[in-house]
Every structure is written in structure tokens, then in C-alpha cells.
Amino acid sequence: MAKRKFRIYRGDNAKGEFADYETEVQEGMVVLDVIHRIQAEQANDLAVRWNCKAGKCGSCSMEINGKPKLACMTRMNEYQEDQTITVTTLKTFPVIKDLVTDVSWNYEQNKKIKPVKLHPQAKSDRGYVMYQEDVDRVQEFRKCIECYLCQDI
């Protein structure tokens, strides 16, 4: 257990400022755990998105000490004990409030992606016939969790 220092952006797109927080951090905690603790104890209305807390949903994207990261997969022991951890939104996107951004552009793009059409000749009465070696590459792209970290450049 140790007290750790955090600076978190509070505000919207027009104006805002960094607020300083100090809180206890236990072994194994990730940055999202600390944000939740600050939220429960000191800043009930601190806005942050999250869902799965296991790196699967891509909701808790933010900049941690200037690097785009998932807060749920960023362990506190990646940082020095005396280091202040600064947390902001991904700067690519307009801020809605605190750590929450407007990512609606991605959903507009989503609509433009054409629907899949499988080749009718691949269809059998047991379903489509495709071999693992042929789907390997496609599956790689489908691992995308839409966290949008890659757009934060």
C-alpha cells in the first residue's frame, strides 16, 4: 500500500483544468482501479467510460502520461512510486466531459463499410466451407476491439 499522485483532466472541450488527487494503491492495481477509487471517494461525478475491465471491449481508452492506453490493462507498477500519473482523453477526439470523448466519427465510418458477401459456391448443406489457413488472416483483423488507440496520433 502506498499513496500515489494523480493528475486528471476535468472539464469539457471548451474549458477545463487538471485536478490533483492522492489515493492509496494496492498491489496489482491497474490505472482504471485507481480512477474508480478516486471517483468513489473524492470525485463522484468524474466521467470515465469502461465496461469489461479485461481488455476486451475497448471502452477505457485514454492517454496515461501522454501514451494512448487501455486503463484496464495498464498496471500501476509500470510507473515509479514517486511519479505523478497524468491522465487525459485521447487527444484525437473532442472531449465530452473529463475522460469521455466523442468517438461518433467511427460509427459513421462503420456504416460505410460494405456488408460481407460470401461466395455462393462455398456454401454446402453443412454451412460454408472455408479452411483455417484461409481464414487466419481475416481473423487477425477481426480481433480489433474498436478502442481507437491507433487513431491517437
Binding site: D12, Q39, N44, D45, A47, I96, K97
Partner: peptide
Amino acid sequence: KAKGASQFNPGW
């Protein structure tokens, strides 16, 4: 009681 305003307020 939820503190703060109505915009994106997790406490609320």
C-alpha cells in the same frame, strides 16, 4: 444524493 451536474455524471 448524487453530487455534481446532470452531464455525464457517473455518481448519478
